[in-house]
Nucleic acid binder design. Structure first.
Lengths: 112, 112
DNA sequence: TTAGGTACCTAATGCGGCGAGGTAGAAAAT
DNA sequence: ATTTTCTACCTCGCCGCATTAGGTACCTAA
């Protein structure tokens, strides 16, 4: 449904957008994405965790382990200052592309 | 400005959207993209031609050489039936992702 | 005790963008 | 005259990165 490349391009901004609303942990992020997209976006944990690690190395997010009752400890992520900047930058890129697609293809503009 | 991955994810739908409006050749496509995006999308020929070839192999587009006055012969591409289907499918994917991003991030919704 | 949900991690492959380099003709500038 | 610039196409090879497939571990319900 959603192409591989589109999937790849959207992971980082979506993660940043979720964490911008509050800290969260990996497994929960996957479910939020599925819920919010109405099941159209299905992420696997195998693709998410490496991305989270890379984003932490890049300083866009930060993590902290926290115990949970009736569950394994979870690694909670929160967005950093540079992360918020990155989110803004990514969103502006998305707007550019979306606008170009809208101009080229009338039906798109109608749908927004 | 536009991330690598976003670039990768948008090339094919943009090409298909351009060709859906009429046949065109590579060099011209690059300029159209630059113009339509107001310079925010800068494609290089080195990335475009391989993509066009792959898309032709996939049957999404078809090409024909044609002579031009005061210029080298140009390879004109046109969209095929499967290409139009692919375009619709890609656009629907983009709508899904865009919608998810909008839900997560209010400022986006305002901008559309 | 077995299955399924929660929760995390990693190694190896493979794809694809992109930079760099190449061909060639026409026009404009030096 | 000759060099540069613009048009117009093509290809090779590196490298970064996502994805696949596999693995660990705990809890609850059947």
């Amino acid at each position: 449904m959603v192409s591989k490349q589109l999937m790849a391009a959207s992971t980082r901004p979506i993660i940043l957008a979720i964490l911008a609303r509050g800290e969260d942990y990996g497994y929960s992020i996957i479910q939020k994405v599925r819920d919010i997209s109405g099941g159209r976006l299905e992420w696997t944990d195998g693709m998410l965790y490496p991305v989270l690690q890379r984003m932490e190395m890049d300083g866009l997010i930060a993590s902290k382990w926290r115990a949970a009752q009736g569950s394994r400890p979870r690694r909670y992520y929160r967005i950093t200052g540079p992360g918020r900047q990155e989110l803004e930058s990514e969103l502006s890129g998305w707007r550019s592309v979306w606008k170009a697609l809208s101009v080229l293809s009338d039906p798109v503009a109608v749908e927004t």
